[in-house]
Simulated assay, not measured.
Amino acid sequence: MIVRILGEGQYDLDDHALDALNGLDTQIESAIEAGDEEMFRTALQGLLAAVRASGTHHDVDSLDESDLILPPPDVTIDEVRDLLGDDGLIPG
């Protein structure tokens, strides 16, 4: 699976990493529903850190399409609220 963090680049992750990412995505959704900026920021940073820690940098020269696109670390809670679908940031 190829995951892009906007403004940062792509990471290759094993499919089993998706379970951990989904847990963090659920925390982001809960924070947004509660309007809790601090919880949102913590959960988002955790999600992005998990992608960085679990993945390896994808070849910069590659034109491979990302399977999942995550917002940059400086995104606002309102911007993510607008991005969320029924499945959160991470489908599944």
Rank of each mutant, 00 (worst) to 15 (best):
Gly7Ala: 09
Arg4Met: 12
Met39Gln: 13
Leu18Asp: 05
Ile90Asp: 02
Ile77His: 02
Ala49Gln: 01
Ile32Tyr: 07
Val3Pro: 10
Ala43Val: 06
Leu21Trp: 02
Pro72Ala: 08
Arg4Val: 10
Leu13Asn: 01
Asp59Arg: 13
Asp67Val: 02
Ile5Gly: 07
Leu70Cys: 08
Ile2Asp: 05
Leu44Met: 10
Phe40Ser: 04
Pro71Thr: 08
Ala50Asp: 03
Leu24Trp: 03
Leu13Pro: 00
Ala50Val: 07
Gly92Cys: 01
Leu84Tyr: 03
Leu48His: 00
Gly35Asp: 02
Tyr11Arg: 12
Ala20Arg: 11
Gln27Met: 04
Asp86Trp: 11
Glu8Ser: 13
Ile90Ser: 04
Gly7Met: 09
Leu48Trp: 03
Ser62Gln: 08
Gly88Met: 02
Gly55Asn: 11
Leu13Ile: 07
Gly88Asn: 01
Gly23Asn: 14
Leu48Thr: 03
Val3Arg: 08
Asp82Phe: 04
Ala53Pro: 00
Gly55Lys: 14
Pro73Arg: 03
Tyr11Leu: 13
Gly23His: 14
Ile69Val: 15
Leu89Phe: 05
Glu29Met: 15
Arg52Gly: 04
Gly9Tyr: 01
Gly85Ile: 02
Leu44Ala: 04
Asn22Ala: 11
Leu89Lys: 05
Asp87Val: 08
Phe40Cys: 04
Met39Tyr: 09
Leu70Ser: 06
Val60Pro: 15
Ala31Leu: 01
Ser30Val: 09
Val75Tyr: 06
Arg4Asn: 06
Glu37Ser: 14
Ile5Tyr: 00
Leu84Phe: 05
Thr56Val: 12
Met1Lys: 03
Glu29Tyr: 10
Thr76Arg: 04
Val80Gly: 00
Gly85Ala: 09
Arg52Thr: 08
Ala20Asn: 09
Asp87Lys: 15
Gly7Ser: 07
Ala49Met: 04
Gly46Gln: 02
Thr42Pro: 00
Thr26Ser: 14
Ser54Glu: 04
Gly92Ile: 04
Gly9Ile: 04
Leu18Phe: 11
Asp25Glu: 10
Gly46Ile: 06
Ile5Arg: 10
Asp74Trp: 10
Asp87Pro: 05
Val60Gln: 15
Asp86Ile: 14
Asp87Trp: 13
Gly23Leu: 14
Glu33His: 12
Leu84His: 05
Pro71Ala: 11
Leu13Lys: 03
Asp19Gly: 14
Met1Cys: 04
Glu37His: 14
Leu13Asp: 01
Gln45Trp: 01
Glu65Ala: 10
